[in-house]
Simulated scan of single mutants.
Amino acid sequence: MPEPQRRPLPHDFHPPVASFSVHSDDVQDGQRLKDDQVYAGGNVSPHVRWSGFPEGTRSFAVTCFDPDAPTGSGFWHWVLFDIPANVTELPLGAGSGDMAGLPEGAVHVRNDYGTRDFGGAAPPPGDGPHRYVFTVYAVDTEKLGPDADASPAYVGFNLRFHAIGRAHVIGEYENPAEG
């Protein structure tokens, strides 16, 4: 079977912006996701922290996108924005379950599972490895504009014009072919 084509990352189509650091206790760049970040294994949003973002940052957004999903448009697993500028870390589970540690005022929009939270990795069996791009955006405004009924694409559109910095960590996950 041919190697699946690697699709571009969602921010490859946005203008260049400052970079900064993002780290996670749960997602290591280029490494397999932990079972907690898998839909059937726990479905828990990972810990994420960031530093070195540009001056003028007034809020943050955090997303998780699978560009390798066999949809023609990728798959949004997590879209969270209007995170206050004084928050530089989301604890494990802040975007799932009872959302303990989710900053007041932060807004979730529906992911491609149709829920307003983090939805873990669930690539089709035998589809090869998928990348899960966890991106933190530094935003130049306290309120991005969309509300909780917006689509991930509309949030991305607004981030295109308001992101002044961006950092990401990419985990991978694969479901082996059945049988």
Rank of each mutant, 00 (worst) to 15 (best):
P84H: 07
D147S: 13
G56T: 12
E89K: 11
H11V: 05
L102P: 04
Y173R: 09
E104M: 05
Y137F: 15
P54M: 02
V139L: 07
G171H: 10
K34E: 15
D26M: 14
M1T: 01
I164V: 14
Q28E: 08
M99C: 11
S151T: 15
H168G: 08
A177N: 03
A138G: 13
G101H: 09
R166A: 03
P146A: 04
A153D: 11
D140S: 15
S51I: 09
S21H: 13
P123T: 06
G126W: 05
T135H: 08
T135R: 12
R166H: 00
E104K: 11
E172M: 11
S51F: 11
G105F: 01
P70I: 02
T115M: 15
G52M: 15
K143H: 13
N43V: 03
L90N: 07
L144N: 02
V87K: 03
W50A: 11
I83T: 10
V136D: 07
R32V: 12
L90V: 02
F53S: 02
P176Q: 03
T57V: 08
G128T: 10
V87W: 01
F118W: 09
F157S: 06
G42R: 01
F157R: 12
G52Y: 12
R116Q: 14
A122P: 04
R58S: 10
W76D: 02
H108R: 03
E55V: 13
P125C: 00
R7L: 14
P16N: 01
P123D: 00
G156V: 00
V17R: 11
R116E: 15
V169L: 08
N175P: 01
P129C: 03
P15A: 12
M1E: 13
V44T: 14
G74Y: 03
F161Q: 11
V133R: 00
F13H: 11
Y113L: 14
G52F: 06
G41N: 08
S51Y: 08
R49V: 04
R58I: 01
H168D: 15
V62G: 07
N86R: 09
P103W: 12
A122E: 06
F75L: 02
N111A: 09
P176A: 00
E174F: 07
G56Y: 10
G30M: 03
P54G: 06
F118N: 13
Y132C: 02
P8K: 05
A106P: 04
G95H: 02
Y154V: 14
V136T: 11
S19K: 09
A100H: 04
G114W: 04
F161Y: 14
H14Q: 07
T57A: 04
S59W: 09
